[in-house]
């Protein structure tokens, strides 16, 4: 219990540091370029939303994916605002353009799509690889039966625990 409490306390401390870091970063960004900071906050809103609500056990991977896709849509506008040297007017111009919203949030949506599609493709590939391995093992089994006779498929199999013991459980996301 004490250890749990210690771990919880450490987690809270880390979160505090994270918030302080983010606040300081945003503060600095606001100080250097308030227009770009505003554009960033608005553009990365899907990432921020995910960051706030996602409780998945692969949260960090999911956030990385959403962030990188989302940022891919935001970076071109940031570069444009920075390069225009007009500050807020350039930022407002960007935000008033429906296509820029579409690009920034569309890339975030692509990220979400990738998160859905990734496991689908991975499971299909894994299924193919398992089938191949099973076929190879079947060949080994036939060889062993040829060498030792049918008796080898006797009681021994029942005595053994399921393979592999430490394999992750079959759970839905």
């Amino acid at each position: 219990m004490a250890a749990k409490r210690q771990r919880a306390a450490a987690g809270a401390s880390n979160n505090s540091f994270k918030w302080i870091g983010i606040s300081l970063g945003l503060g600095a960004f606001l100080f250097v370029s308030p227009a770009m900071a505003a554009l960033t906050v608005v553009g990365l809103a899907p990432t921020l939303a995910a960051w706030l609500v996602d409780q998945h056990r692969f949260r960090s991977l999911r956030l990385s994916t959403i962030f990188t896709f989302n940022a891919t849509g935001v970076v071109p506008y940031l570069v444009t605002v920075w390069g225009s040297g007009k500050g807020f007017s350039a930022a407002l111009g960007t935000l008033s353009d429906i296509y820029s919203w579409l690009v920034m949030y569309g890339t975030a949506a692509l990220g979400l799509a990738a998160l859905w599609l990734g496991p689908q493709i991975a499971s299909t590939i894994r299924q193919m690889m398992a089938g191949d391995r099973a076929r190879r093992l079947g060949k080994v089994r036939r060889q062993m039966i040829g060498e030792w006779g049918g008796e080898i498929a006797g009681e021994g199999a029942k005595d053994l625990p399921d393979f592999p013991e430490n394999e992750p459980k079959n759970t839905q996301a």
């Binding site: 692969f58 991977l61 999911r62 994916t65 990220g111 990738a114 998160l115 599609l117 990734g118 496991p119 689908q120 493709i121 991975a122 499971s123 590939i125 894994r126 992750p168 459980k169 079959n170 759970t171 839905q172 996301a173």
Partner: peptide, 14 residues
Amino acid sequence: PGEDQSLRVGYQAA
């Protein structure tokens, strides 16, 4: 696809 292994690999790829 919902197995941990599939999720991990899929997310890593994404």
